[in-house]
Every structure is written in C-alpha cells, then in structure tokens.
Design a binder for these strands. Sequence first.
DNA 1: TCCCATTTTCAATCATTTCTGAAACTCATG
DNA 2: CATGAGTTTCAGAAATGATTGAAAATGGGA
Lengths: 185, 185
Amino acid sequence: MASSPTNTAGVQHIADEFIAAWGQMAGAWGISRTMAEVHALLYIAGEPMNTDEIMDRLQISRGNASMSIRALLDWGIVSRTHKRGDRKEYFEADQDVWSIFRSIVRERMKREVEPLLARMFEIHDRCPPPDASGDPQQQQDLASLQKRIERMLEFFQTLEKLSQRFAGPSGKGLETAAKLLGKMP
Amino acid sequence: MASSPTNTAGVQHIADEFIAAWGQMAGAWGISRTMAEVHALLYIAGEPMNTDEIMDRLQISRGNASMSIRALLDWGIVSRTHKRGDRKEYFEADQDVWSIFRSIVRERMKREVEPLLARMFEIHDRCPPPDASGDPQQQQDLASLQKRIERMLEFFQTLEKLSQRFAGPSGKGLETAAKLLGKMP
DNA sequence: TCCCATTTTCAATCATTTCTGAAACTCATG
DNA sequence: CATGAGTTTCAGAAATGATTGAAAATGGGA
C-alpha cells in the first residue's frame, strides 16, 4: 500500500467498529452474526470484494463465508459481480439504505408472517360452528375464542397489506411513506 | 367441569394450535419460544391465570414459567392481578392487538436500535477530520466512508423518530397511521 | 416473632444454532 | 478431456441460548 499507514489503519479501525456494531444487531434482523458482518463489510467497503478478501478481513472459514454470502444473495441485499481478467467472483452490497430495509422487511414477512397468517386462517376455519343445543357457557367460550383469533387475523392481514404496498420490490414506497408520516403534525 | 367434554376438548385443541403457531413466530419478535407461548396462552385464555395453571397447561418448569412471566411484564404486554381470597398472583395479557404490537416495537427499538444509534454517532464522531496534506486517495476513501456512515445514521434517526411518534406508549398512533397508509391510492 | 405458601434465582444440564475444514463438485482453459 | 482455480456442501466441533429443579428469598398473617 502506498498510502500513509496511520490513515489506512484509521479507516480500517472505523470500518471494524461499524462492522462490530452491525453484527450485534444481527439478532434483531433475524440473521446470523457473521452474515450481518459480511453485509456490513461489503456495505462499508463500497466496492466489490471476493471470498478470500472477506475471509481474511473477518477471520472466518471458507465454508462460513460461502454460506453467509449465499444467504445475503437470497435476501437480495448483495449481488455478484466479476472483474475482468479475474476468475474469482466478487460481491457487492446494495448501497441504498432504504432499499436494504425494504428487502429485509419483505423477506421477513415472507418467512415469518405469511406462514403464521396461513396457519391462523386454518385454525379459524377449524372453529366448530355455533351449536344452540350445547352448554351456553361453552358456546360463550367458543365465541370469544373466535373473536380473539379474528382480531389477530385482522391485525396480521393489515400488516401484510401494508408491507406489500410499502416494501414491495419496486419504488421508494417506504421512504416516502416514512418521510410523510414523520412530517405530519 | 360441567360442560360437554367434546366441546371443551375442541376449544383446548384450538387454543393449543394457536399457542404453537405463536411460539413459532417467537424468533421474529426477538423473544424465546416459551415466552411467546405463555403470552399466547394468556391472550387466548382472555382471563387471568396463575403460575401453576400456566405450568400445567404448557408443561414447563416453575423456573421457566417465572422467568417468562417476568420478561412479559418487562415488555409491558402482561400485567399482574389478584383474586380475592387467593394469595397467588394472577397474570393477564393485554387484549388490544395494536397495543401489543406497539409495546413490542417500542421495546425492540429501545434494546436494539437505540444502542446501535449511539454507537454509530460515536463512530461517526471518531472519523478523522479531512487533512489536505495527506494522500488524496486516502482522503477520498475517508470521505466516502463518512458518507456511508452518515446515510445509515440518517436512516436510523428517521426510524427512531417514527417509532417514537407512532409506537409511543399513549394513543392509537400506529393503528390510525396503518389504516391511513393502507387506504392511500 | 415465626410459619408457610409462594416466588425468584442460579448452577448444571440439555437443545439449538453456528462455524470449521476438508472433500466433492464445477467449469473455463490449454 | 485432463487440469486446477474457484466454489459449495456437510458431518462433526464449538459456541450460544433455553430449561430445569432445588435452594434461597419474600412477604402476609397468626
């Protein structure tokens, strides 16, 4: 490296802190620590890196690096690139923070909320129909059970609709919505 | 129990399915499976239950029950009650789905986003000031590093402001916002 | 005060998730 | 089609997180 060692070290150190901070958030986003760190590294580096560079920088095994990168590709927040005259694959992170956020929301809705919603519809449908001949207390319990499930169902349906609309793959839906809401009195 | 065994079993079974579905979502909300199950049980039961009832129903140990309840109290989605003539403590779940959601959002912001935000401010402040005497390439790198951190910072600040506004402890902020947004063309 | 029903804590155990490293696989190139 | 740089897979090891159960703490009432 031709540049001043002090400054280089400084930049590296700042990047490391950023990566560490990001890694600690991992749980909150539903991804593993390493996966978050790889993403942070690619985001903060701002330019494509290959597997070996990532391994060296984060001190992780090849297998781990490969799996984390694969997962990030699946989430749609990292993409493949190539460099002329180099057979290695390079990876770069989406640099638009709101787009990253949308991808994460979208993916989590798909993985967590959609199955739950389906499950709740099933459960709701399985509720026995009201039966006037039975014990009134029992009928009462059944009715309020149904009501509670319906309230949940309605909530998750609203959530689902909102996410489809504002975290959909196209457009800046979420960002504009956020700014609008943020300005309202 | 005086009521028809068939129906009682039916209600129990439906409740069990609901609890199981909820438990699987646990990861997504940043809580443990058991904690989610206890909450689901109290929500679906709709009336206060004591520790022993919860233990029996979910087949968990006393320690586990105690810790899960405590955590739910901390999150603010379950509250203590008492029954006259009974020294046991009873617990009941908030029945307003949007209020539950607000509590969860609020708590997670506090635990995950706020520390990260603080950390990022620190990191940003630690960025060395521009130094015209240095290597131009190095200056360039530093500048774009700063820009990336700033973009993140701005994003999380917006998120924080939004959450304070709409998930704050008072009012139906989130629900109305959601309905508004959901209706916009 | 002491008693006893109840709740909380915590070290040990158990379960789950994550990581490693080496073998298997892929595929452009000579 | 044989080579080897590059990538993926996966069985076991390591780390992390959840659960138990029994002992300690709490607190209301005699």
